[in-house]
Write a protein that binds this DNA or RNA. Structure first.
Lengths: 162, 162
DNA sequence: GTCCATGCAAACCTTTTGCACTATA
DNA sequence: TATAGTGCAAAAGGTTTGCATGGAC
């Protein structure tokens, strides 16, 4: 396995914090930096084992905690019951997610509107935004083209009319 | 305990689906409809027991699943490791959340910008939005006034400058 | 009377923690 | 060599499931 060049950024962060940069931490970082997907811990573990790294799950979790703290990696929860991780290098640092309810595909997009909302929120509520999460769930073009439709099982009488 | 009037909406939904409306289901619904907070399953269980309802956790989970399916209740995950539930009656049907990282307070707000983003997403990506989640995490006015500041522990060299 | 729901406990899954051992600096 | 990390297994915490019993219609 080839160590990803960005791993040295992480090593630098660790040294700044007075923490040792270990083989395991670098291996986890390399896997995350080498993918543009949103990886689960299971995904990461699988890739490490493929590359002949014998590494404990606990160590992966501990390395991810440091990666997130360094701000080189972002943690996501798309409501699947587990977390996903994506690195923040060579891509838009701030972006939002479209998540297809049919195929699970994740599409990233950027929007200045959110910045505008954050400004408004500070103004109107005195609330100082630190970070946000905008996820839109729906059907991607491919699934729509394939004729997929979303089931609708709510109360037949719309709430608004009550 | 007084059963909340909106519970009959839920009963109606259950009958529409050919499902029985039981005491337990109505009790869970009543608790959720009687609060404007974002309740955890623990919160709900506690309130039921206060009101002399002996009801199993599994039943609460199963009732909540039906409430969510009926669209009378919305499920949220604010990244605490468990879900929260809020009803959708007598409040803005679509609203976003501000979550204070210090005190956990949740503030609701409405924004038309999100609708605009959804329109754009369909246009630009062919992605048909079904629902969304916009959460802004930061510091509420009260915590800011109390002098709270958020710790910043990322890499000192900004990524953008690498 | 037929289904379906309930309650309890066990199972499940992801994530966290304790501890003896090992590697880093 | 001192300090901190690793691996394993056990624990934790929220949520789901199996099954015998009980309630709704």
């Amino acid at each position: 396995m080839i160590t990803h060049p960005f791993v040295r950024l992480f090593s630098r962060y660790l040294h700044e914090q007075g923490l040792p940069s270990t083989q395991q931490r670098e291996a986890v970082a390399s896997v995350v930096f080498s993918s543009d997907e949103h990886l689960s811990v299971g995904d990461i573990e699988r890739r490490l084992h493929q590359d002949e790294h014998r590494i404990g799950k606990a160590t992966i979790y501990r390395a991810l905690e440091l990666l997130v703290r360094s701000k080189l990696v972002e943690e996501h929860d798309f409501g699947e019951g587990f977390k996903r991780y994506e690195h923040r290098l060579s891509r838009e640092p701030v972006h939002e997610h479209l998540i297809c309810l049919e195929c699970g595909r994740v599409i990233e997009f950027r929007s200045e509107e959110v910045k505008r909302i954050e400004d408004w929120v500070l103004d109107a509520h005195g609330f100082a935004p630190a970070r946000h999460r905008l996820e839109i769930y729906g059907l991607c073009r491919e699934c729509r083209d394939a004729g997929v439709e979303l089931p609708e099982r709510g109360l037949t009488c719309p709430i608004e009319a009550v």
